[in-house]
């Protein structure tokens, strides 16, 4: 009986293998002559070629176009109709009487975007790391419904930024849900999104809520990688909980926290969509970050001149910042890997 079943199984496998065999032969028909011409050692480049073509089409060529736009002027989109070469855009972006006061800069919207981005990244990343660690430590304990809470904290990461923006707009608007609760307890309504002193705090809070789950997961993985015998030894020595946290947990989490720090910083600098939906960058320019400046200048001028060159130059500057952060991440992750190998 078993033998018959195996025979049927192997028959079906053979049948199913036929199209694959045809497919592999067809590939072989193409690859064999190529391999003959370029040699086995160069074959990996052929396999990389499709990816490289896509990378070139969607990354290298747009990057080249961006450099071209940043070094040419005019309101035309077609290359042939733009004036070349000029550093006017960079001059315009970087000219300030006093770099600490955006009002003295030629392109004050850009500098407001820069300062807002620095402020946003500083507090968003700092607070997010703090809350991610706190949450991960709690979720690492044997609490009731641990799996459920892990899902709950990760859930916002799955939401589209536009959905996040809209949900929190409904909650935080002056006539929104949160103000209704405040009013029902006799309080006064607060303009969370339209008062300059509240708006940035609100967008930082929403951003932390939306992204914290992802970083909590990384920290949680780090916590679970800490050998339990270290904790057992510390407990046997009568070490206090605080001391265990600061002397064992935190130092051993440091490589993960560095990764979290760099990733969150890169993501923070690129933030745009959820804030654009939530506050539109307002009131005034108080929540307008650098990516919004680029978008507005190049693509959403509402009838003003669409300054592709200025937007391209600003994105080149942003690109340099992101490159530095990425190199930092690479350096730290390699450092972490080599330390692991040493261990």
């Amino acid at each position: 009986m078993k033998n018959t079943r195996n025979q049927i199984k192997s028959f079906f496998i053979r049948i199913l293998n036929i199209p694959f065999a045809f497919f592999m032969h067809a590939i072989d028909l193409i690859m064999w002559p190529i391999q003959k011409i370029i040699g086995v050692r160069n074959m990996p480049y052929i396999f990389l070629l499709p990816n490289l073509i896509f990378f070139g089409l969607f990354v290298i060529i747009p990057l080249g176009a961006n450099i071209f736009f940043s070094l040419s002027s005019g309101d035309e989109l077609l290359f042939a109709e733009r004036e070349l070469p000029t550093t006017k855009q960079y001059d315009e972006l970087l000219t300030c009487d006093n770099y600490l006061n955006p009002n003295t800069c030629t392109e004050d919207f850009f500098w407001r975007g820069v300062y807002n981005t620095i402020f946003f990244v500083f507090f968003q990343v700092g607070l997010m790391i703090f809350f991610s660690v706190l949450t991960a430590v709690i979720l690492n304990k044997n609490i009731i419904g641990r799996g459920f809470f892990r899902s709950v904290f990760f859930f916002p990461v799955l939401l589209s930024p536009v959905v996040v923006g809209l949900i929190w707009q409904w909650i935080l608007l002056k006539n929104g849900a949160f103000n209704a609760v405040i009013e029902s307890y006799g309080g006064n309504k607060v303009s969370f999104l339209t008062d300059p002193s509240w708006a940035m705090a609100s967008v930082i809070f929403v951003s932390i809520w939306a992204h914290m789950g992802f970083y909590t997961l990384i920290v949680l993985a780090g916590l679970q990688a800490i050998p339990p015998n270290l904790y057992e030894a510390a407990e046997m020595d009568g070490t206090s909980r605080e001391r265990i946290f600061f002397r064992i947990t935190l130092p051993l989490l440091m490589p993960n926290l560095l990764v979290v720090f760099i990733l969150a910083s890169i993501k923070g600098v690129q933030t745009f969509d959820e804030i654009y939906v939530l506050t539109g960058g307002g009131p005034g320019t108080s929540t307008s970050l650098i990516v919004q400046y680029i978008f507005t200048t190049g693509f959403a001028s509402s009838g003003s001149v669409q300054n592709f060159g200025l937007a391209a130059a600003a994105s080149m500057i942003l690109g340099v910042v992101l490159l530095i952060l990425t190199l930092m991440q690479l350096y730290f992750s390699r450092n972490k890997e080599s330390k692991h190998q040493e261990i």
Binding site: K174, T194, G280, G281, G282, P283, G284, T287
Partner: peptide, 13 residues
């Protein structure tokens, strides 16, 4: 009310 013009930025209608 500042809530109205404050809810957007730049040239947005």
């Amino acid at each position: 009310s500042k809530d109205l013009w404050g809810s957007v930025s730049g040239t947005k209608y």
